[in-house]
Design a protein around this nucleic acid. Sequence first.
DNA 1: TTGATTTACTTTCCAATGGAAAGGTAACGT
DNA 2: ACGTTACCTTTCCATTGGAAAGTAAATCAA
Lengths: 384, 384
Amino acid sequence: MTLADQPPAAALVFQTLLQHGPLSRAELGRRTGLTPGAVTKAAASLMADAWIAEGGRPSTERTNGRPATLVAVRPERALFAGVKVTGEELIGVLADLTAKPLASHRVALDSRDVGSVVLAVARLVERLRVTADLPGEDALHGIGVTISGDVDSRLGTVQYSPFLDWRRVPLAQLVEEATGTPTVIENDVRALTVAEQWFGAGVGVSIFALVTVGAGIGAGLSIGGRVVSGAHGVAGEIGHLPVSGVERICTCGNTGCVEAVASTHAIAEQARQATGDPKLTMDDAVRLAHAGDPTVRAVFARAGHAVGLALACVANLIGPERIIISGEGVASYDLFADHIRQAFLDHAFGAAVDCDLLVRPLPFEEWARGGAAVAAQRVFAPTK
Amino acid sequence: MTLADQPPAAALVFQTLLQHGPLSRAELGRRTGLTPGAVTKAAASLMADAWIAEGGRPSTERTNGRPATLVAVRPERALFAGVKVTGEELIGVLADLTAKPLASHRVALDSRDVGSVVLAVARLVERLRVTADLPGEDALHGIGVTISGDVDSRLGTVQYSPFLDWRRVPLAQLVEEATGTPTVIENDVRALTVAEQWFGAGVGVSIFALVTVGAGIGAGLSIGGRVVSGAHGVAGEIGHLPVSGVERICTCGNTGCVEAVASTHAIAEQARQATGDPKLTMDDAVRLAHAGDPTVRAVFARAGHAVGLALACVANLIGPERIIISGEGVASYDLFADHIRQAFLDHAFGAAVDCDLLVRPLPFEEWARGGAAVAAQRVFAPTK
DNA sequence: TTGATTTACTTTCCAATGGAAAGGTAACGT
DNA sequence: ACGTTACCTTTCCATTGGAAAGTAAATCAA
């Protein structure tokens, strides 16, 4: 019996346990609105199929009444592979039901050709499987592949990937055929948002945005437990909000884009102009800024300002409870944190300033973890 | 038996009929995914309580098989009053279940004091009731009051209204006490969005935005059948997106806001500066622009550009299928239509340009109709 | 030790819901 | 007249989760 066959109440109980950890049946009833009897039945049904188990510390605090026995998800009940595809490499993780990485691996890509990428993905998944010493075929319940660009997860196709120069590639089907394991694909930022929604800083938050700052600048929006995909596959493109000045031209051909001044590439480029050193790298720029170089610091200030304006746009438009800031750029967050905050506070309208800005470092496997979360979601929250 | 007591399938059937007009049972089954038997039962249940009735042209096109008998909602089954409160006046309509206005009336406000506004609302509703010659007390099923600003519809309080200078006013409760009729309140733009979602250009559209251009510039977002309210009551504040230049200062104290260059007031102000005529009104500006005055036309061009950028922000962030442009400003839409479109097309990213821009004129009762739609929604789609 | 109290959990029973499947109905075409 | 087609209704039933009463395991008080 798979989780999809469980009655709605059981699915609800399972999801609550996934998000909030071990709970007593009584507490589950309170949180889900189910009656005690219904919880008992749902738990029995889930337990019969080994999705959950009794156990976990029975809360040290002593109270009156019969002590509670906790039930908890058995994360190892189903395992998933998550693979993030970039133009240069694959990042893969093997993760459990809660998208916790059990093993990870990176592979350089030597070709961006669809066939060889699919093959590389299949090899990477096989390698993860071997590394983790998985017993049989059925131990891996799904694969989630994530990729930046325009991804239609329902169709399972990559509509357009700028970094790989792919168009209308039925990637989910190809990987599924190459591996024999059910595969879903999703935009990388949306996948990360799914991971945060279920297992990260988005748990219990009705509306939040996840912003990634790095080579690109993007956002995922979660509203009422669903990640927004946009009618045409485009959503959360904060990198191209026209909020900065007209001076710099973005890769998209426009002026005013946030990415034109705040992407890793744009910052390095501006630092080169500011210093006159044509060989300056991003790392050099960070070093110079930390050393106090005023012109380079101004570059970071400007980037921070643009990001802050973008966050204000998000806050004014959808009014999130929280914005999670993440991405490679977070490593040098101290250099523009103040400018981000200031620009945000200045331009967030009314109660939108109450939005909580949260910075999260993003280890490299995190991206791949998003894929695992999307694959896992298929199992525990099949699309109604 | 009220609609809330109907089983879920019946509610679904009713909502489908509300949005798509008279349908055969077979067609209802196809659209809702219910089996024929379930539709028959749902329809019988709704018919027993007079929510729907058989009838309507049985589709002229001839086909094989037994001819279909259509069922349709009985819009007059429940009537609602919608009242829009501005700083100067009340606009009220009496509307049926489909938010179609049956009678309307405007009243000037002589005081912005909470008590007198509540009294005026109650009198207006009473007048509408008399005008329409409603039989008894129970003929009016609800009142929806809309107002611009920060409204918490769940609590029923106006958190902050700049035009009335109200804070934390429990308006729903006050109107309910004054009229004896169940009352809901909602932000005016969101209410309009609800009306469009159920009965207007938003029917069947999974994600859309409704943008109003006039004294203020705002937007309502509908995603997956729900209007976004924001965690702190703020959402759709496109009037304060920081996309225009730094020259003009907005009423909110910031620079760069769309409202600072594109609100009715801002356009008139800029036209006065451009012409040097301190008495110039908005109407004069429109006349001059139509007559070809280049400096005034430039003012409209700039306003259109700012609105277009704001629309691009909406498209890039949430990827709507459609953006409905409405508001008083639409009257002179021809003056900036091209600039809106151009700025939008330039800055919408990727497939976001596929978003459909639709202009809808907004008769004055339309605002109040939003209130009626919100009140009606309480009846046919009680919050789950 | 005993029993009251409190909270957690289980069991039994049942009403409601909507699907499956079969049957009835009203048109058309030949 | 008779088959065909599509619409609609009826009957029966499995599933679901609530209501309510009962059981379990702890603390507290006498």
